[in-house]
Nucleic acid binder design. Structure first.
Lengths: 211, 211
DNA sequence: CCCTTTTCCGTACGTTGTACCAGAATACTA
DNA sequence: TAGTATTCTGGTACAACGTACGGAAAAGGG
């Protein structure tokens, strides 16, 4: 058994190196050559472990989806969903490329499906039908991605963008925007509060919904 | 006035050609050479009108953001927000690359700010503070992007992905997922209904929220 | 010891973004 | 009218990318 030259690396090594690169320098830094260099291999060797770059990114997504070990369900769907959503946010903080990678790349692997399974379980006490729970989970993930994206954007840039908004606002158009900007913006909205809005609001509405 | 050789093209021409390409073949098809060929120019001539590819995409986003002419505000924030959200959805249907392009690219130009201004106005009757309205608008756009993404994904792929899910589900793990799949999924949830959930749910919760 | 199988990876090709610059086209100045 | 300053055009070139191809290397089975 095990004929042929034995592999010098593993798929996991390749995926881990890719994740390390993406965490440090963004998804664009994940090039076949750089990933290979990271593990000390030749560029073409990666193709033994991964069919192409696109699948590599699928694997990266699914790998990080396996990171959080979610607490067991309590039966309180509010709390359970909040825990799930918080875990997703932590994940996206740890891997800022994740929101971008998620767009247009649906449910690749087992860890991703595990997250889905967990969410479906959390919403079981709501009594909502399966398709509805499914849709809501998509919304929740979209919400977290959107929230984290604005969190990260606010932290990093805000340089020339603030200038752009400022000058546009000063132009006299966008009076309401000007008012909001003048109002000071205040602290970024608390994630816990917004997550509560989303969870309570959406599930309540979904339950109230006719038909 | 107007010294030097006169421009043979316009920035608008460049941006429009890029949008046409992206609509037809996706964002990746927007390469400097292809865009240039589309308008009959040399590749390097584009750099007279646009600093680089990244800015080109910013301009594309802002250009399409100017497409919808939104109906005047009625004072009914539910209706006005629904109109806004529907317009955004139409936009993303017409330009399927938009959700992806939006990730990590915040509020580039005047049309984008105009959309923001409109949204702020629509929410004025809610009495919510400016920062809250701002945050909610971000959420709404995130939801629409997420909804449309899943709409488009469901329409196009579902080929090997369905097989992957099927085999994983057949494996015996993910019992709840299996139940939902067996349940038939049913028709995709109505956009109007989900949008209502989001708008009513979020605004209601934001209003109820303590402090 | 050779044969089959499997992995490794150097070389090479087509495509990308864009730096550089010579040439062309215009308006202003003398 | 001739020259000069200014601006736009686009060919050439380069580094970096994904990856097809194929020979070298390393293992087990005969």
């Amino acid at each position: 058994m095990a004929r042929g030259r034995p592999p010098a690396y593993t798929r996991e090594q390749v995926v881990d190196a890719s994740i390390r690169l993406a965490d440090a320098d963004g998804l664009d830094a994940v090039t076949m050559r750089r990933v290979a260099a990271e593990i000390g291999a030749g560029a073409m060797s990666l193709y033994t472990y991964v069919p192409d770059r696109e699948h590599l990114i699928d694997l990266m997504v699914d790998a990080v989806a396996g990171e959080p070990d979610l607490p067991a369900l309590t039966g309180d769907w509010r709390a359970d969903l909040f825990a799930l959503v918080s875990a997703q946010r932590d994940l996206m903080h740890r891997h800022p490329w994740l929101p971008g990678a998620l767009t247009g790349r649906g449910m690749a692997g087992r860890n991703m499906l595990g997250l889905l399974e967990h969410g479906l379980g959390a919403m079981e006490p709501t009594g909502l039908p399966g398709a509805t729970r499914m849709a809501l989970l998509g919304m929740f993930t979209g919400f977290v991605a959107s929230y984290v994206t604005s969190e990260l954007a606010g932290a990093s840039t805000g340089e020339d963008q603030a200038a752009q908004i400022g000058s546009a606002v000063a132009g006299g158009d966008f009076p309401r925007l000007a008012a909001v900007v003048a109002e000071g913006g205040g602290p970024v909205l608390n994630f816990a509060r917004v997550a509560d809005w989303v969870i309570n609001g959406l599930v309540r509405q979904a339950g109230d919904s006719p038909r």
